[in-house]
């Protein structure tokens, strides 16, 4: 398939109005084709979640969203609320970080899965239940018959996240958006979930957008990675390039900040300071305050463009590091 599964173009999100307005996403563009996985990495406040929430019309007013979000040739930002509801859940599936807050505590697992199947695919109650049982089995839940009648509080964290994935996959969406889906889980459970998503994607060929603060999690899953900072894309590259030859000082900082299993060092290369306030962004490079390089007089005054520095490798800095 040549058509992109999902793409955002020049997406901008402003929360609030007037002097307190926060520009949380600033001109973000990326795309992911069917059968491929895009990793979107950034720390809190980088705008990584806001980008996908805004593109699916999930931000409450007073958010101002401009740009476009293309799914199968249609711009989601131009659709009516009703049309969007027909697409979310049907062609665009979501899995969020905390399954306890995204599942309805008052409904059984069965009802939460069948709701979308009946609504979007017009299945009968009985057919939907059969499908729900099948889905639970494919996401690796033992004894699916019994679990259909369970309520969310009766399940473990890992099982709840499997139910979320079953719901997201229930209508065989074209695109799966997973927003920090393993952050609240134990490492051994995280490994199970990563494995499950990989296997489901191989079978169903959907496009996956995987949002995470953890470069290592994304490293094993994604084909391409976008690194966000202060509402902008600061680097974008195929996953091997990003890990092997990161060009932006921020990406290099992130890679050096994590302790790595089996490679002990005396000091971690911490990035000093804290991310910028989206209500008071610096005039120049968004990373300027914390940057160890600051290698160009324009850094403080001009916003660098996102420029190509290698094959499919883009970075937004005046001082790209040589490999």
């Amino acid at each position: 398939m040549n058509a992109p599964g999902f793409a955002v173009q020049d997406l901008t999100v402003v929360l609030g109005r007037g002097r307190r307005a926060a520009r949380v996403v600033r001109g973000v563009s990326w795309s992911v084709e069917a059968g491929r996985t895009l990793g979107v990495v950034g720390e809190s406040g980088s705008g990584k979640s806001m980008t996908v929430l805004a593109s699916a019309g999930l931000l409450p007013p007073p958010a101002t969203v401009t740009g476009s979000a293309l799914l199968g040739g249609r711009d989601l930002l131009k659709l009516s609320r009703r049309e969007l509801e027909g697409i979310r859940g049907r062609r665009l599936g979501f899995v969020f970080q905390d399954p306890m807050t995204s599942l309805n505590p008052l409904l059984t697992v069965e009802r939460q899965i069948t709701e979308g199947i009946e609504e979007h695919l017009g299945a009968t109650r009985r057919a939907a239940r059969d499908r729900a049982r099948e889905l639970l089995a494919t996401v690796g839940i033992a004894d699916p018959d019994r679990r259909l009648d369970a309520y969310p509080h009766q399940l473990s964290g890992g099982m709840r996240q499997r139910v979320m994935i079953a719901i997201a996959l229930s209508c065989e969406p074209d695109v799966l958006v997973a927003d920090e889906p393993t952050t609240a889980l134990d490492v051994t459970t995280q490994a199970q979930i990563l494995d499950l998503v990989r296997e489901r994607q191989e079978r169903m060929g959907m496009a996956v957008v995987w949002i995470s603060h953890d470069l290592a999690v994304v490293g094993g899953l994604a084909d391409d990675v976008v690194v966000m900072y202060g509402g902008q894309v600061v680097e974008q590259a195929p996953v091997e390039t990003l890990h092997g030859a990161p060009a932006h000082p921020y990406t290099r900082g992130l890679l050096g900040a994590r302790p790595v299993l089996g490679k002990r060092r005396d000091r971690l290369t911490a990035i000093p300071g804290t991310p910028p306030d989206p209500r008071a962004l610096p005039p120049g490079c968004v990373f300027f305050d914390r940057c160890p390089v600051k290698g160009d007089p324009r850094c403080e005054t001009e916003v660098p463009d996102l420029l190509e520095v290698g094959r499919r490798h883009y970075t937004r800095t005046f001082c790209p590091e040589d490999q």
Partner: peptide, 23 residues
């Protein structure tokens, strides 16, 4: 240890993982 993702994507893709079943 095998559940911790390796920072090198190439190693990460090719290695064997011990997946624990259940909870």
């Amino acid at each position: 240890m095998s559940a911790v993702p390796d920072t090198d994507p190439a190693t990460e893709r090719n290695r064997e993982r011990i997946l624990l079943g259940g909870d």
